[in-house]
Design a protein around this nucleic acid. Structure first.
Lengths: 261, 261
DNA sequence: AAATTTAGTTCCAATATGTGAAACTTGGTT
DNA sequence: AACCAAGTTTCACATATTGGAACTAAATTT
């Protein structure tokens, strides 16, 4: 009694959904049970409900569960009305066409970078990012660009929750290093990714900030060491700033949900 | 007792989520309330919970709710593991490059067509479809292609639940007309859309069917009346059949969740 | 082929959770 | 200052959710 109430049935159901999604492949009931804090019968019913709601699909042959197509439908709506993507698309397409490189649009979501759109270069490179995918904030161009412009009260908790996993030899390894870098970015107006997340992949990123100073997201132009250099990418900065200004301007009207948290 | 139990709390919460999503723009609490079958207090709490779970985001200035970014994250997982898209991508990209037109990949979801992927033609037309978007089954090429190959027991209920809204002068207007058309499609092996959904937009579609005869989805090549004709699109059929065969073959291994229902 | 283990499903009493009419609070209007 | 509408909280009541344990089906061993 002393304790808090739980997270409610809905919370539990969503936690299960996350668990299924996080496996990234069809999972068996037993596998879920191992990780789950809920007893067998409870988990079982939650999975049943989600399946009946087609938030999960069940493969009777393999006896496995996977995220359901209803999510794809819902996400389309989310993407349309909660992400910058629909507003930003035309500007990003123009940008990508002009500079001939891959362009990313990202937003912060729970301390991580969520890629909400991606326009491929004419001849695309193989890389990690994909629309809908999440990535680390501390070692990507878009992530650092957003963090640099966040008010301290929001930034600090995020800095602390980063993993600082050293993906490459160039990855920043601590909050201290990152803080220094962010200060430089804030002064400069743009962030670099010098192979900090993926070997060979470099980018320049600028944040999307409203007139009132709120960070909505970030845009990056990404390429490879082979194809160009940081200096080469810097040449695109004027175009990027123009695109970002247009996006911020338009988003201002459409108005924008608080990043909540 | 005779009656069923309700749909459970989770079901209600998801219904609310759908309601928000279906508006396609940020909505106020009051707007939701008008459509909602639930009393004010109940709806209020459901919305609260969903917001706390970041399935919805709340804009305190405007006092509006919109689908949250958590959905985008979840949907990515769904798209990856429950849709044909990841398997089909390379084949569809090749197909689109070869024929120089826009290619769609769709699956059936609750009697509707769900577009799970789209590869744009070299010079993209603007039109009414995008990954995650749903469309009617009775008047799209992909929809009819899938329906034609569905076992009767699954097909009939779907035929009955279609709206038969006459989008254009060419739209089929009744289950009877549609049944006749489906029979022709099944004989022929492919479906047409002769401006049945959008004026000026035409396509040819073929279903993706496993060796065991299960319908997994459909692929279409879409263009406009201006640019080509149905006859022009038919020239692409051999390539489409090849692509579809490859996709079905690969999906067979990856194994595939039952379309559920 | 029978016995044993493991994985998945159902039951049911106890109770935590969710319900909704009505009262209240807030902010904007006449 | 009084009013109105939109949003929020309360509280007695109902019900959906819980989870231990019993059950069944399928895979594995003897």
């Amino acid at each position: 009694m002393a304790g808090e109430t739980g997270e409610g049935t809905v919370g539990k159901a969503l936690a299960v959904l996350d668990a299924v999604a996080s496996h990234g492949r069809p999972v068996r009931f037993g596998e879920l049970l191992e990780t789950s804090p809920y007893p067998k019968a409870t988990l079982y019913r939650l999975v049943q409900v989600l399946t009946k709601q087609s938030m999960l699909t069940y493969d009777p042959d393999r006896q496995t569960y996977a995220p359901g197509l209803r999510l794809v439908r819902l996400a389309h709506a989310a993407w349309q009305s909660a992400s910058l993507a629909p507003v930003a698309r035309p500007y990003l397409e123009a940008l990508s066409a002009e500079v001939g490189e891959t362009v990313h649009l990202a937003q912060l979501d729970g301390g991580q970078v969520l890629y909400v759109d991606k326009i491929n270069a004419r001849n695309p490179l193989q890389m990690y990012s994909q629309a809908g995918k999440v990535g680390p904030a501390y070692c990507t161009g878009v992530g650092k660009a957003m963090l640099a412009y966040l008010p301290e009260a929001e930034r600090e908790p995020i800095l602390r929750q980063q993993s600082y996993h050293p993906f490459t030899a160039h990855t920043l390894a601590s909050p201290e290093e990152l803080r220094a870098e962010l200060a430089a970015i804030a002064k400069r107006g743009h962030a670099y990714d010098r192979e900090e997340h993926e070997p060979g992949i470099i980018c320049v990123a600028v944040p999307i900030v409203t007139r009132a100073g709120r960070v909505l997201g970030a845009v990056s132009v990404t390429s490879s060491k082979e194809r160009t250099s940081i200096e080469g990418l810097e040449a695109h900065l004027p175009r990027m700033h123009a695109a970002v200004a247009s996006i911020a301007g338009e988003a201002q009207d459409w108005r924008f949900p608080d990043a909540a948290e």
